[in-house]
Structure formats: structure tokens, C-alpha cells
């Protein structure tokens, strides 16, 4: 009794709370159910591998002789593996809002709102939760692809994952804002998410090189932040840490994070109305 009393008082007395600490609490809370339910994680980790195994050969086959020219000289896997990681991040973090939607209905989110947790931490912690399985996925993909000629550049790969996590926070926050905006019509969440995600993905040169598409597509792609992210990931995974594409990738991620968190926090503060 006295122990908790003292601890409570000291906790109350600290005044300023670190954002990092709050993010850590939200992240740990989000991860706990995964620990109890490892199958869902394992299942999720295998999915990108299936995609890689089925789509990769088709891609190389379709491009045929032009493969080396369009995909660069690093080979199809060097082109495709980073893209699959971006894709997993895209799908994972853009779905964070749906988890929130559920906690919105049950009241768990409301309970968190009536605590001193900083508002951005509720967004950031949830988005980062998607990045933990992703790191595992990346490791599995890399290990599996090594025998097929994929070359690993550890510093580049780590920076690539960091960039993805950063971008994922922004996207997760936007997904969160979407969930709040459509909370009275749940089905809208998936409708909007899919409507936005697929064009973004195809217009980023993630799955198929845009070089083979019409001019207008290449123009639109230049306005798509995801294009810069994909290009940056490809350079990072190839070990080109100081390329311009990497710099633009960070800029695109930064813009996404700033917009995402601003919109997300605004939505959250008004969410109870």
C-alpha cells in the first residue's frame, strides 16, 4: 500500500512526461496481444514471401530481355524485395485505423483519452506497432532471398527499415484520422483505404516499373510521395546510402509524418464531439 502510494505521488510529481515514454507505453500495450497470439504474426510474416515467390518470377519473365535495363543492374530481387517491404508497411500501417475503430466502439480508446497520455503518442505508438512484425518479416525475406542472389547491405537495410518506420508513423496517423472521420459508417473505412492505397501503390513503381507505362503515369508518380520512398528504399537496400533518391525519400517521409500527425491529433482531439 505505502509502496504504491509513494510511487503514485512521485509519478504525479514528475510533471512533464516524455513523448518517448508515452509512445513506449502505447506500443507495449499494442504488442501484448501479439505475444499471446503468435500465430497471427507468423501467418502475416509468410504472406509477403508468397507474394514474392509468385510475383517476382512473373515480373522478370514479363520484362524478359528488358529486365536489366528497367530494373537496374542489381537484378530483379534487389529491385523487388525493398518494394515488397514498402508494400507491407503500406498495408499494415494504413490499416491501423481499423483496430482503433474497434476500440472506439468498445470504449477502450475513450479510457485512454481520459489519461495524461500525450495525444500524439496514441497515434505514433499504434503505428509503430505495425513496424515490429515488419522488422521480423524483413529479416525472413532477406534470409530466404539470399540464396537467390539477393545481396544484403546491413547498414543500408537498417536505415531502410528506419525510414519505413518513420513513413509508417505518418501513414498510420492518417489511417487513424480516417477511422475517426468515418466512425459512424465503419464500412467506409475499408472503401476509402482501398481506393487510396491501390492507385498510390501502382503509381509508385512499386510492383511494376513505370518506365514501361505512359507519360501521364510518370508525371502523376512524381507527385506521389510513395514513389520517392520506394526509390529511396531501393538505393538503401543496394547500399547507396548517400544518393539523392535517399534524401528525397526522407523528405517524402517527413512530409507524410508532419501532415499525418497534425491531421491525426486534430481528428483525435475532436473525436469525442
Amino acid at each position: 500500500m505505502t509502496l504504491t502510494d509513494t510511487a503514485l505521488r512521485s509519478g504525479r510529481g514528475t510533471g512533464r512526461r516524455g513523448l518517448a515514454r508515452d509512445v513506449g507505453i502505447v506500443l507495449a500495450r499494442e504488442l501484448r496481444p501479439l505475444r499471446h497470439d503468435p500465430f497471427s504474426v507468423i501467418f502475416g510474416m509468410v504472406q509477403p514471401l508468397v507474394f514474392l515467390a509468385l510475383f517476382g518470377p512473373l515480373l522478370a519473365g514479363t520484362l524478359g530481355d528488358r529486365a536489366a535495363g528497367t530494373l537496374g543492374h542489381d537484378g530483379v530481387w534487389q529491385w523487388f524485395v525493398p518494394a515488397v517491404l514498402v508494400m507491407t508497411t503500406l498495408f499494415g500501417t494504413s490499416a491501423t485505423g481499423s483496430n482503433l475503430l474497434f476500440e472506439f466502439q468498445t470504449g477502450a480508446h475513450e479510457r485512454m483519452l481520459v489519461t495524461p497520455l500525450s495525444r500524439p503518442s496514441l497515434l505514433i505508438g499504434r503505428a509503430l506497432k505495425e513496424m515490429v512484425p515488419l522488422a521480423g518479416q524483413a529479416l525472413i525475406i532477406v534470409v530466404v532471398m539470399l540464396p537467390f542472389g539477393f545481396r544484403l547491405h546491413p547498414p543500408g537495410a537498417l536505415l531502410g527499415l528506419a525510414l519505413l518506420a518513420f513513413f509508417g508513423v505518418g501513414l498510420g496517423a492518417l489511417s487513424y484520422a480516417l477511422a475517426i472521420a468515418v466512425r459512424r459508417q465503419e464500412w467506409m473505412f475499408w472503401a476509402v483505404q482501398q481506393t487510396v492505397i491501390f492507385p498510390l501503390m501502382l503509381l509508385s513503381g512499386m510492383l511494376l516499373p513505370l518506365e514501361s507505362g505512359p507519360d501521364w503515369m510518370r508525371v502523376v508518380a512524381r507527385l506521389n510521395p510513395l514513389s520517392y520512398l520506394v526509390a529511396a528504399e531501393r538505393d538503401l537496400f543496394a547500399g547507396r546510402l548517400d544518393s539523392t533518391a535517399v534524401l528525397w525519400g526522407w523528405v517524402a517521409a517527413l512530409v507524410t509524418v508532419v501532415c499525418g500527425v497534425a491531421v491525426g491529433v486534430r481528428a483525435m482531439v475532436r473525436s469525442a464531439d
Binding site: R29, R32, P33, H36, F102, Q105, G107, E110, V114
Partner: peptide, 16 residues
């Protein structure tokens, strides 16, 4: 604060 809904997340364990 005990709201009208359930404060505990459904996917979580009670003690957690």
C-alpha cells in the same frame, strides 16, 4: 473515469 463503454481493450488480458 468509467465511461458507458468498456475501458479495457477486448484483445487484451485483464491484468495487462
Amino acid at each position: 473515469y468509467v465511461g458507458q463503454g468498456n475501458g479495457a481493450g477486448h484483445a487484451h488480458r485483464v491484468r495487462d
